[in-house]
Nucleic acid binder design. Structure first.
Lengths: 337, 337
DNA sequence: TTGAAAGCGTTACCAG
DNA sequence: CTGGTAACGCTTTCAA
């Protein structure tokens, strides 16, 4: 197949060892011999056999990310960040879509894994250094989960923004997956923000369903907007739910944001294409990917874990939220802080 | 690190050869010894070292796809199809994001590559069996390019659909990247469909720009819709351009589809979220991925290339196109076929 | 049915 | 500075 070190040795009439020295840039070799060997290697397109190298304990600088949600723009951003961090540190990042592939790669010299594993892997997958971005962090779990940690902050930003605009009756359209950490966090921060502003929490303004996402947003908004006392703003769990809210508003001949302000969460690629463009929250996935990769590399190289600043999501104000038309003075008087 | 065949040999008191026979399921071994070895291997989580295997010529069944547009829903579909075809045939599919990674993997036993290479690789990348989905197929190039081959068919479908609805003045909003094969194909099929329907081609109804995509659609539609004799329908190069057309229509207080029908091409995830939902064309990327992987496997295993039926894109009629309100009788009389 | 030995391509070690 | 040799983990071949 491809040229080997032994072949080059034969061709140049020196020993394997000498060829190796030339190739590895060792100082202890005569200049002319090095040149001879290097030229021969180049001429024959010599490429070292990594399998053989691995066998004798060489490093591969190969890392992998286990993923199944390709096509997700956020994952793509994460991946880009991770990839750049990897190549910046001389690593190569592959993506695998099953644990089986990972096991295979491990046998080929894979050095570390970034994954979204359900279980709380104790910092390793199959004996490999691992950074685990768990969605549902079990109580007492490790702090790997840099990924979803700041949803609270993002939610607070939206809610404070709406409240700052003058809204007092704010609905929350969400999913009925009580286990999901994000769903839980968003609800609790929704309440937190209300409390902070001295607004009484009205459970009937929180609507849940478990339909297909857009449909869920539609149904939720329908429920809220057909009430005798509809909210003046809706905070949707995600942009796709917000899109469903738009549809409900259109159907009810309500104009966004004149009649109802709507905010989402995610900043998907289409969020600015909706009409009106959607006010939402963007998570710095690229930076998160970068950080995850750096954590992994640190772990691979046995360094102590660094405890960096959290990477905060940022509010993207666009056209879907504005001041409410009429502020109920009742509610205003409730304000305490 | 991990258990080796030699260690198991020592533990069970047999030779490496015997362990190997047990592990590889050879018939020529005593039942009780096989059992003993297998149990010991299981107890110690023995996993064969692939690097060593590769070194002695074993296969890895590892394939990779070279990609950089993660986050693209179409690529994700393609990948899913390819991945399923791979695992169905006992292969593992990885994704790499640079040629360097590919070269690395090759040294580790990678067997084949699916990629979107610019150059017309003669069925191999770095000596590896390759399926190349070229975007701009050079004249006389090979037929690998199952991916983009049927854009003509999709375009014809949209155009025939619009014409069938009664439209005679149809604008085309496109990009000014004349080299791009898809851009070229769509334009020529646009003309083809017009000709087929006996409608004269009016070059001024084709608008190009090279701005940021959505903006390009906006500008293009603006140009068309502010003419004294605007078209009754617009065929946009892609869904993102169509989204820009929507914005222009809204700004001009034109209603889609009542005042102007708009069709796109791609069927992105957001296309049905736009208002009104966008009539567009969907390419069967998953099937294409499946086919690409099958081609690769055939190539790896030295089989003769199969020449299957083309996989045709399909029109997705939704809410953004309808009959024109008034049909100019002038143009109707032009109809020949 | 079993064991011993050679070899895959590389690196590391030790004599020269 | 150079060459020989052992070693990595596995498979294959050849004797026993």
């Amino acid at each position: 197949m491809s040229t080997t070190i032994t072949e080059i040795a034969e061709m140049t009439g020196v020993s394997k060892s000498t060829v190796h020295r030339a190739l590895s840039g060792s100082a202890k070799i005569r200049g002319d011999i090095r040149k001879l060997v290097l030229e021969c290697a180049a001429r024959h397109h010599y490429q070292p056999n990594l399998s053989a190298r691995v066998l004798v304990g060489a490093r591969t600088y190969l890392a992998a990310i286990l993923a199944n949600d390709f096509g997700n723009i956020h994952f793509a951003q994460f991946l880009r960040g991770a990839g750049e961090a990897a190549s910046g540190a001389g690593y190569h990042l592959l993506t695998a879509s099953s644990e089986k592939e990972l096991v295979n790669l491990k046998q080929l010299g894979l050095e570390g894994v970034i994954g979204f594993f359900q279980e709380d892997l104790e910092a390793e997958f199959d004996g490999l250094p691992t950074v685990n971005l768990v969605k549902a962090l079990p109580p007492g779990g490790r702090k790997d989960s840099c990924l979803n940690s700041e949803v609270a902050c993002g939610t607070l930003q939206v809610m404070r923004y709406l409240i700052g605009l003058g809204h007092r009756r704010i609905g929350h359209v969400t999913l009925s997956i009580p286990r999901d950490r994000d769903v839980k966090t968003k609800l609790s921060e929704y309440r937190h923000a209300l409390k902070e502003a001295g607004i009484a929490y009205d459970p009937s303004l929180v609507v849940r369903s478990e339909l297909y996402m857009e449909q869920c947003g539609y149904e939720g908004a329908m429920t809220l907007l057909t009430r005798p006392d509809p909210p003046t703003a809706i905070f949707a769990l995600s942009d796709i739910l917000a899109a469903g809210c738009y549809r409900a508003a259109r159907e009810l001949k309500l104009r966004v944001p004149r009649d109802i302000s709507i905010c989402g969460y995610d900043d998907k690629e289409y969020s600015s294409l909706l009409y009106p463009s959607l006010t939402t929250v963007r998570t710095p996935y690229k930076l998160l990917g970068e950080r995850a990769m750096k954590m992994l590399i640190a772990r691979i190289e046995g360094e102590s874990g660094m405890d960096e600043e959290p990477l905060l999501p940022v509010l993207i104000p666009r056209g879907s939220a504005t001041r409410p038309r009429k502020i109920s003075t009742n509610n205003l008087s409730e304000k305490k802080i």
